[in-house]
Design a protein around this nucleic acid. Structure first.
Ligand SMILES: [Mn+2]
Ligand SMILES: [Mn+2]
Ligand SMILES: [Zn+2]
Ligand SMILES: [Zn+2]
Lengths: 138, 138
DNA sequence: ACGAAAACAATAATCGTTTTCAATTAAATG
DNA sequence: CATTTAATTGAAAACGATTATTGTTTTCGT
């Protein structure tokens, strides 16, 4: 149960450096392409692993979908979801309609602000994750 | 440019039926498995296409990630993102820190409510999508 | 009932990501 | 230092989810 400190290897140092001067939210492939210029022999898996380690140690932040699979909902009205990492099920967020309405309005206002800033906002997704009620009760 | 009405095929009818009585947000595979019991010869691609068509015609709602690729951010503080469907770049949502703070607080309250409902909330993702400023200016 | 267009089943291809494993490198020990 | 131990790497294969392709079948307006 000991926490082994992250090793600062040459490739990790360079990956971090290049991520920083790439700036805006690159994909793994984008990082790979620039790093390859300095480390021609580096492999894709090293880039994947390093970014993972760097984010796990708080140097950077990973942006990833809560759940990668497509899902379908017979309820077409606006509501939010909760993904349980334990049972891997998607549940409706346990919120009263009034709460949903309020949040919806709030975020709608935010969208307006972004539109005022020159962005065309088509929509958004808000998803919570953690452990669902039934899983928690065990 | 004509809008062709969706054909109501046997398999679409059954897929919709089964999606409805599956209830909670099934994955494509989950739909496939139950539908296969009634239509042993149905193929996976038909399930994919049908769910797509059904959602496009408003019968059901698709739940999918704004962007499927992993991305990494050198900014580790809390902030929101905007995905441009045109240039396929992820940008920081153009919001003033005060606005972010406010939303953060608002959603934090929502999390509390869900915790009160027996859920363990580890976090959430909020992502906007549409067309970014620079793409819009063309 | 006929025929054009749409949808189908089966299969292969693609995409992003993870795993495997032998070789290399870094850190810990003496 | 030299030696031991353990983590990391590169290359390749495997993976799961989704999309594309190709003939065949079905739907539906006429
Ligand atoms: Mn739902
Ligand atoms: Mn960011
Ligand atoms: Zn659960
Ligand atoms: Zn753009």
């Amino acid at each position: 149960m000991e926490k082994v400190p992250m090793r600062i290897t040459y490739q990790r140092k360079i990956i971090l450096e290049e991520l920083k001067n790439l700036g805006n939210h690159p994909t793994v492939d984008e990082v790979y392409m620039v790093v390859k210029k300095r480390l021609p022999k580096i492999s894709m898996s090293t880039v994947y692993r390093s970014l993972e380690v760097l984010s796990k140690n708080g140097f950077i932040k990973k942006i990833e979908p809560v759940d990668t699979q497509k899902r379908f909902d017979d309820n077409t009205s606006t509501h939010y979801h909760f993904y349980c990492k334990n049972c891997e099920k998607m549940k409706d967020a346990p919120l009263k309609p009034e709460m949903v309405k309020k949040l919806e309005k709030e975020i709608g206002a935010i969208e307006k602000i972004m539109e005022g800033n020159g962005y065309k906002v088509d929509g958004y997704t808000l998803e919570f994750f953690g452990t669902c009620k039934s899983c928690e009760q065990k």
